[in-house]
């Protein structure tokens, strides 16, 4: 996967621990940690929204909204369940649906265990590693397949186009997501201890 220079360092597997930063926002309203998250994610959200068809000023405004929601909902973030990039993505996607389609998206019920007060370090690390593996798997896809996935997530493919598209490498992704299911089951199994 393409790795960019960040803060003068070529980042590798041990790149910035975004989840730790977001937990500092969550637990201590840490503005310095928020600023680091902002500098990394806001330009990506803006790029993502522009690729989704938003003009520069709308994308700028929405990217600020997305980062403000990230602050506001930090206490709902669960590093064992999602990476920060995934969490930011879901906020950006919902903002896009509101702003560009003027529609809403029904959300499922909350799982009753919610974020654990003391995040399990091992689970959080596993989620992070799984996310990195997923990123590498996507980057390793042949260009036409990767482009299809990107177009789907930029909102360029309608749901019927996604349904009709046989070139989507959903199998590749599925092999990655088996772990997420196992992890979820594991946590559901120990749910009562957390409530």
């Amino acid at each position: 996967m393409l790795r960019r220079k960040k803060d003068g360092l070529v980042s590798s597997e041990d790149e910035t621990d975004w989840a730790a930063l977001l937990l500092r926002v969550r637990d201590h309203q840490d503005r310095a940690a928020f600023a680091v998250l902002f500098r990394h994610f806001a330009p990506r959200v803006k790029a993502f929204l522009m690729k989704s068809g938003a003009g520069a000023s709308l994308a700028e405004e929405c990217a600020q909204d997305v980062m403000a929601v990230l602050w506001q909902k930090a206490h709902l973030f669960d590093p064992a369940r999602a990476s920060v990039a995934t969490w930011v993505y879901t906020i950006a996607r919902n903002r896009r649906i509101n702003a560009l389609r003027r529609a809403r998206r029904a959300e499922p019920e909350e799982l009753d265990w919610g974020p654990a007060p003391e995040p399990d370090q091992a689970e959080a690390l596993e989620t992070r590693q799984e996310t990195e593996r997923l990123g590498r798997a996507l980057a390793a896809l042949p260009t036409p397949q990767r482009t299809l996935i990107e177009r789907a997530f930029y909102g360029e493919l309608s749901h019927s186009e996604i349904a009709a598209e046989t070139g989507l490498p959903l199998g590749t992704i599925k092999s990655r997501i088996r772990l997420a299911l196992d992890k979820l089951r594991h946590r559901m199994g120990e749910g009562p201890k957390r409530t």
Partner: peptide, 24 residues
């Protein structure tokens, strides 16, 4: 639900690689 969470993670990976456009 687990599958859906995983597709969200694909969205996260796409966002991470979407490039950067400087904020104001």
């Amino acid at each position: 639900r687990a599958q859906a969470d995983s597709f969200d993670a694909v969205g996260g990976a796409v966002l991470e690689e979407a490039g950067e456009i400087a904020m104001g």
